[in-house]
Simulated assay, not measured.
Amino acid sequence: MEGKLVSVAAKVLVVDAGNTSIKFTAFEGEQVLWVEREESFPVNTGFSPDVIYFASVRSKEQSALLHADIQAEFPCSEWVTLTSQAIACGVRNAYIEPERLGVDRWLGVIAAHYVVTGDVVVVDAGTAIKVDVVNNDGVHLGGYITPGLAMMEESLLSKTARIRFDSREVVEGDELPNSTARAVTEGCREMALGFLERIYHRYPEFKWVVTGGDAQALLGSLGVSLECQPNLVALGAKLVGDERLRGKK
């Protein structure tokens, strides 16, 4: 994306409500002041936003409750709820029903197109491992969702009676796993790596932008050249929210 967009509000709070945690990112202009993961707005920050950009993948009921709690905290702040669209910030959604693309994926794709010039593979490795591809023209080509490392392990343990281990048993080794703990943790990791390696071989010339707690560790093992953007979704929310506000003026 050409050029640099200028913030339309002095102080912005981005609320990214994921499945397992809520990420609050405070912006002053284009600068990130702080980032917190909490279940409610963190206290004693001294931050009072002019506008709140709200993006949630939670149920309608959960999102409404969170919305009400935060709006009660900042009744004078303007509120913008972000959803996936057919087109935003120069990016075209691949989905036939654009609103069904998870808003976190959508915002990550938009941010990646903004921060990197060229064709991009976007990887968000958290609760789930999400991969999206966007080309230099801002056309989202589609993507994948697979379970994240912790989810794969939990699924295996919940469906079996005798696969059990203590977290203290999880150690790394170079040879084949010789304990249940290693068999499970390293097996899940190999599955994730195999998936990401196939993506890499399919798009070898694309640049990679990654976010999420497991992204760097996984992709570092593959030797993929990448750009880490821990606040990728928040940056996308800032871009889309600012575009929405400009449209109102």
Rank of each mutant, 00 (worst) to 15 (best):
E2C: 02
E2T: 01
E2N: 11
G3C: 08
G3W: 04
V8F: 00
A9P: 05
L13V: 04
V15H: 00
V15Q: 03
V15D: 07
D16F: 06
A17P: 10
G18W: 01
S21W: 01
I22K: 09
F24G: 05
A26G: 13
A26Y: 00
F27Q: 06
Q31D: 07
W34P: 00
V35T: 11
V35F: 01
E38P: 05
V43N: 04
V43G: 10
G46Y: 11
F47A: 13
P49H: 07
D50S: 03
V51Q: 04
V51N: 03
Y53P: 08
A55I: 01
V57A: 10
S59H: 05
E61M: 11
S63D: 12
A68M: 08
A68S: 15
I70V: 13
Q71M: 15
Q71E: 15
E73R: 15
E73F: 13
C76I: 03
S77N: 04
W79D: 10
L82Y: 04
Q85M: 13
A86G: 08
I87A: 07
I87W: 02
V91E: 02
A94G: 03
I96T: 13
I96E: 05
E97V: 15
P98L: 10
P98A: 11
R100Y: 02
L101W: 06
G102H: 08
G102M: 09
V103T: 02
G108S: 10
G108A: 13
V109I: 13
H113A: 07
V116Y: 05
T117N: 12
G118F: 08
V123C: 15
D124C: 01
G126R: 08
G126C: 07
I129A: 03
V131R: 05
V131Q: 08
D132G: 02
V133N: 01
N135E: 02
N135W: 04
G143Y: 00
Y144L: 15
P147M: 06
G148I: 01
L149R: 08
E153C: 06
S158Q: 01
S158V: 00
I163D: 03
R164L: 12
F165I: 10
S167L: 10
S167P: 04
E169K: 00
D174W: 13
E175F: 13
S179I: 07
T180Y: 06
A183I: 05
T185G: 00
T185S: 02
G187W: 12
E190P: 01
F195Q: 04
E197W: 06
H201W: 13
Y203N: 05
Y203I: 05
E205W: 07
E205Y: 10
W208M: 13
V209K: 02
V210A: 12
T211I: 03
T211S: 14
T211H: 07
T211Q: 06
G213L: 09
G213A: 10
G213D: 06
A215Q: 09
A217W: 09
G220A: 14
S221K: 08
E227D: 10
N231H: 05
N231D: 12
L232H: 06
L232A: 11
A237M: 14
D242V: 07
E243K: 05
E243N: 12
K248T: 11
K248Y: 11
